[in-house]
Every structure is written in structure tokens, then in C-alpha cells.
């Protein structure tokens, strides 16, 4: 594990290694293919679409990068997002007669989402760190719990935000600043903060140290449990942030909300060069991973080259190729 770290940091002065270039090359190839197949691919509208829809998974994946770097895993984020979305809608609908349509009720919804996210993350983290249960098992359990809770809240159907409220809240997904929509701005901010935390702050180094070797980190005076707990709480909060922007898009939540988001987020993190076993993480790589995933979908929709039945297969091949590119480089370097 130490070798990967040195391999990743050493060649920075010389030519960047393939582990850095791999995902970037994959993304560039995809962009070229997309442009060649459809002239609308690089249009502002399409780029906005792709970036805005990447934002949900992207924001969650940034949090997931820290969890995985610290040697953890969280399978519950997709269900958690669905549950928080459902909760947010219920609370906002319930508060509507009191608060009326306006900014206070939107803020209330946002606070609910953030608090619920942090609480859900802390609960996962508490069970994993303090009680010492495998992260896989804890989050597999909470994944089922949140999925059932949202189905129960919705009575098996769909929870919908009050129509007037939805119209008022809509700009949070569709509006923006200087022509850049809010999800993209929030996504970018999350990435910048995440990148700084990971590569320049003590927190990021502690995460990597714990993921590398828990015991050594412990003897080096790193508070292992607290750092781990923080990674889960941060991921929970980011799930809340993603939900805040998910709800205004369609104004509804159901049992089918956020299905498989956890796997997409984990896949994006790994494509981006973070090591699944922990010990090394790269936030900007995660962003590339997220973009690769949503761009594949976009390109497949924009072209008629492949039968839609094969979409999943194409996605699988590209994911594996993107990771192979890095592997080979590592073997050589």
C-alpha cells in the first residue's frame, strides 16, 4: 500500500504517470467520440444537462472518496437520498399551511435535509466505529432500512411536493448564476473544498493514513474512530446537499428514487483512481469518474449505434477499460 502512495506522488515533477493520465484520457476519448457522433454534444444545453445531472452522484461521490480513502464503505447513500427526499417533501408539505410559499419554507426543507443527512451519517459511523461492526454490513442494513422507510412514508406510491411550492422551489435545480445552473455551482464548490481537504488539510492525510494502516495511524496519534466517524457524517451531509437539489427537479420521491446511486458513486470513486481498500484518495479523479459515467449514458442516448439493450454492457466495458489504463501504468511504474 505504501508503494502506491510513493508511486502516485513521486513522478509529479516528471511526466504525469498513467494512473493520473488514465481517467483523463478516457474522458477525452469519450468527449471526442461524442462530438464526432453528434454535433449537439458540445452544445451549451447538452453540457449543462450532463453536468447538472452528474451533480447528485458527483456530490455524493466526493464524500464517498473520503469514506473509501479511510478504508470504509457506504452502501446506504442511494436509499438515504430517497429517504431524505421523502422526509423533506413531507415536512415541507406539512409546514405549508403555517409558513406559506416563500423562502422560509425552502430553508426549512434544506435544514431538514442537512440535519437528516448528518444524523444518518453519524448513525452509520457510530455503528461502524464505536460498535466496531463491518461497514459493509452496517450500511447494507441501513440501505434496506431507508429504502423501506421511504416506501412506507409514501404508502408504496409517490410523495409529491405541493404544486405551488414546487414551482417556487424549481429554480434551485433549473436556475443559476451567470447561466451556470445551481447544481453545477454547488458540485464545483463541493469538489474544490473536497480537494483542498484531501490534499492540503490534516483531515485528508489522516484519512489516507487510517486507510493505509489503522494501527500505524493510531500509534501516530491519529484519532482513528473520530476521523472515520467524521467521514461518514460528511458523506451523510453531502447526501443531504444532493437531495436539496434533487427534490426541485421532479418534485417527488418514491421507492425508485436513488436506486443504485451507491454503486455509481463507488464506481466513480474507483474509476477516478482512489483505492477501494483505502489509503489513497483523489477527489478530482472522482469528478472525472462521475463525468465518464454520465457521459456514457448521454452519448448512448444521442446516437443510434448500439441497441439500447446493450447500454449496460457498454458502460461496463468502459468502466473496466478506464481502470485497466491505470493498472498497467502502475505495474510499469
Amino acid at each position: 500500500m505504501m508503494t502506491t502512495e510513493t508511486a502516485a506522488t513521486k513522478p509529479r515533477k516528471a511526466l504525469p504517470s498513467m494512473s493520473v493520465l488514465g481517467p483523463v484520457i478516457a474522458l477525452l476519448v469519450l468527449i471526442l467520440v461524442g462530438t464526432a457522433l453528434n454535433s449537439n454534444f458540445l452544445s451549451a444545453a447538452n453540457i449543462t444537462n450532463v453536468l447538472a445531472r452528474s451533480a447528485f452522484i458527483g456530490i455524493i461521490a466526493v464524500g464517498m472518496t473520503f469514506v473509501i480513502t479511510a478504508g470504509g464503505l457506504d452502501l446506504s447513500v442511494g436509499s438515504m437520498a430517497a429517504f431524505i427526499a421523502g422526509l423533506m417533501i413531507l415536512v415541507m408539505n406539512a409546514a405549508l399551511p403555517v409558513l406559506g410559499v416563500g423562502i422560509p419554507i425552502i430553508l426549512l426543507g434544506m435544514v431538514v435535509a442537512l440535519v437528516a443527512g448528518i444524523a444518518a451519517g453519524l448513525l452509520n459511523g457510530f455503528l461502524i466505529t464505536t460498535l466496531g461492526i463491518e461497514a459493509f454490513i452496517v450500511t447494507l442494513g441501513s440501505m434496506g432500512i431507508y429504502r423501506s422507510l421511504v416506501t412506507w412514508l409514501a404508502d408504496g406510491g409517490t410523495l409529491s411536493l405541493d404544486f405551488g411550492l414546487r414551482t417556487f422551489y424549481r429554480p434551485v435545480y433549473f436556475g443559476g448564476l451567470f447561466g451556470i445552473s445551481w447544481p453545477i455551482i454547488i458540485f464545483a464548490l463541493t469538489v474544490i473544498v473536497g480537494e483542498v481537504l484531501m490534499s492540503r488539510a490534516r483531515f485528508g492525510r489522516h484519512c489516507a493514513a487510517i486507510g493505509s494502516n489503522e494501527n500505524v495511524a493510531h500509534y501516530s496519534n491519529v484519532n482513528v474512530n473520530r476521523t472515520r466517524l467524521l467521514t461518514y457524517a460528511m458523506l451523510g451531509m453531502l447526501v443531504g446537499v444532493a437531495t436539496i437539489m434533487y427534490v426541485p427537479r421532479l418534485g417527488s420521491a418514491s421507492a425508485s428514487t436513488g436506486v443504485l446511486w451507491e454503486l455509481e458513486a463507488i464506481a466513480a470513486v474507483i474509476i477516478g483512481g482512489t483505492i477501494l481498500k483505502g489509503g489513497f484518495g483523489r477527489v478530482w479523479g472522482t469528478v472525472i469518474g462521475v463525468l465518464i459515467l454520465s457521459m456514457i449514458d448521454n452519448i448512448l442516448n444521442l446516437t443510434d449505434l448500439v441497441s439500447p439493450y446493450l447500454n449496460g454492457a457498454i458502460q461496463g466495458v468502459i468502466i473496466i477499460l478506464a481502470v485497466i489504463l491505470q493498472r498497467e501504468a502502475k505495474a510499469k511504474g
Partner: peptide, 11 residues
């Protein structure tokens, strides 16, 4: 009840 229609069916 994993999607809308199934939810209605469960109901």
C-alpha cells in the same frame, strides 16, 4: 411496492 404501479397494486 418498488414503483408507482406496484404501489397502487399493493394498495
Amino acid at each position: 411496492a418498488t414503483h408507482g404501479w406496484a404501489g397502487g397494486m399493493n394498495f
